Simulated scan of single mutants.
Amino acid sequence: MDFAPPPYTAPDFSLPSLATAPNATLVPAPKDFVAPENYHAMSIYPEYLKIDGEWVLARDSRMDCVAVVEDGAVFVREFRHIRAGDLIACGRTENGEEGILVYTEGFRSLAAAENGAPHPGGHDNFAFRLGRSRETAFSRDYDELYELLRHERDHGFIVWVMGPAFTFNGFSRDAFAKIVDAGYADAVFAGNALATHDLEGAYFHTSLGQDIETQENRPNGHYHHLDTINRVRYWGSIERFIQEEGVHDGIMEALVRNNVPYVLAGSIRDDGPLPGVFGNAYDAQDAMRDHIRSATTVICMATMLHTIATGNMTPSYRVLPDGTIRPVYFYCVDIAEFAVNKLVDRGSLASRGIVTNVQDFIANIAKGLGLLG
C-alpha cells in the first residue's frame, strides 16, 4: 500500500471554552532581542492565537521561540530576531484561557502511537519492551521508512543530518551518494568533519588516514585530512576543489553535482575549517532553519549535537502551500541508545528512534530503495 500522511483534524472552535476565549494579549517588545514579561514560548505543536476574534495558526513553529503578530498573521522568531516594538503574544496557559491554544490532537492516528509506531503493549499501561534499544526489532521501521521516502521524494522535502561516521567506510559513502543521485535528499546538515573526511576519502582514499576499504592505516595518513583542508582552501571552495581535482565520488561530490544544498556548521574543535563552514553558530542555525521550514521528513544519523539542534528547530507539523497540514517525520539513528531516546523524548508525535550502526543503516536504506544490487 502506498504511503499517505494521516489527515489533520483541526480544533473544534465552536466549543464554548474556545468560542468565548479572549483575544491573545499582544505586548510590544521593549527593546531589540528582548521579549516582554510573561511572553509565551512556542512548542513543536500546532499553536493558535485568537486575533480579532479569529483563531489563527502559526504556519511555522519552533520550540523556545516567541510568537510575533504582524498584519493578523503569526510569525515564530528566535529571541535574537526580536526587534523593539514587535507585538509578542503573552500568556502562560495553553488551553485558550488567554487566547493561546497549544493543540496536540491534530494527528490522532499518531497520537496513539509510541515513538511513531503502534504501541507494542496495545492499551495496557504495563508492558515489556516499550522503549527503543539494541533489543528492539526494527524491520517494520525500515519497511515504513522505504515507503515514506518514496512518497517524500515526489511530495515532500527530505533533510538528512549526518555525522562523520559515514565517511569511514567506502560502501556507506557510495550508498548515500546513490540516495542523493536518486532524488531522496533535498538538503543535508553536517559539520566540518563529515565534509573533510568525505573529501579526504575522494582525494586519498582514506578517512583520518585509514583506508576506507581495508581500514589499514596509511604512512603519514594523519596528515591526510589536513592536506585535504589545505587543498580545498587553496581552491577557495568545496565546489572548485571537486572540479579542479577531478573528484568523482563521495557524499559532497554527489551533493554538488545534484545541486542539493548543504549546511556545514562548525564547532570549537574543528581543524581548518573548510571554506563554506559556518563559524558563527547562530548564522548556522538560521541557514538550517531556512531548510527546516520546508522539511517534511528529517533523518538524523550519528551526530548528537546536530541532531538535538535540528530537533529543537523542527515542528511536528508542516503547512503546505495549498493549506494542507501534515506531520513532519523525525528519525534519530545512532548506535548509542541515549542519543536515540534523547530525541524521542523531545515530544514529537512523529519522532522515531533506530538503534544501529549508521553505516549499516544507510546501506539498508539504499538496498530497500532498490539502489544497490
Rank of each mutant, 00 (worst) to 15 (best):
72 G>L: 04
208 L>P: 03
186 D>G: 11
76 V>C: 12
373 G>C: 06
220 N>H: 08
175 A>Q: 04
216 E>N: 14
324 T>K: 14
123 H>Y: 11
89 A>V: 11
88 I>S: 09
96 G>W: 06
317 Y>C: 00
231 R>D: 01
135 E>R: 15
342 K>V: 10
280 N>R: 09
162 M>C: 12
99 G>L: 13
134 R>D: 12
92 R>N: 14
337 E>D: 11
51 I>M: 08
210 Q>N: 11
314 T>L: 10
193 A>Y: 14
284 A>G: 08
325 I>V: 13
329 Y>S: 05
370 G>W: 01
181 D>W: 05
10 A>E: 15
56 V>W: 11
317 Y>M: 00
52 D>E: 15
206 T>N: 03
369 L>S: 03
214 T>S: 13
111 A>R: 08
238 I>E: 04
309 A>T: 10
300 C>R: 06
366 A>C: 11
97 E>G: 05
333 V>F: 02
157 F>S: 03
353 G>M: 01
114 E>K: 15
359 Q>F: 01
103 Y>G: 02
100 I>N: 01
201 G>A: 12
160 W>R: 04
245 E>T: 06
320 L>Y: 01
82 I>L: 15
231 R>M: 05
120 P>M: 05
97 E>N: 09
113 A>M: 13
217 N>I: 09
140 R>H: 12
144 E>P: 00
366 A>T: 05
273 P>V: 07
365 I>R: 00
289 R>Q: 13
68 V>T: 02
98 E>V: 03
357 N>C: 10
10 A>Y: 13
32 D>N: 14
190 A>Y: 14
325 I>P: 00
280 N>I: 02
159 V>A: 11
345 D>E: 12
200 E>A: 02
355 V>E: 10
256 V>R: 04
12 D>H: 06
148 L>H: 13
340 V>Q: 07
206 T>L: 01
76 V>F: 00
2 D>E: 14
323 G>R: 09
31 K>W: 04
317 Y>V: 00
294 S>Y: 08
90 C>G: 07
358 V>P: 01
372 L>W: 06
218 R>T: 10
196 T>W: 14
13 F>Q: 05
305 L>G: 01
102 V>C: 11
202 A>N: 07
254 A>L: 09
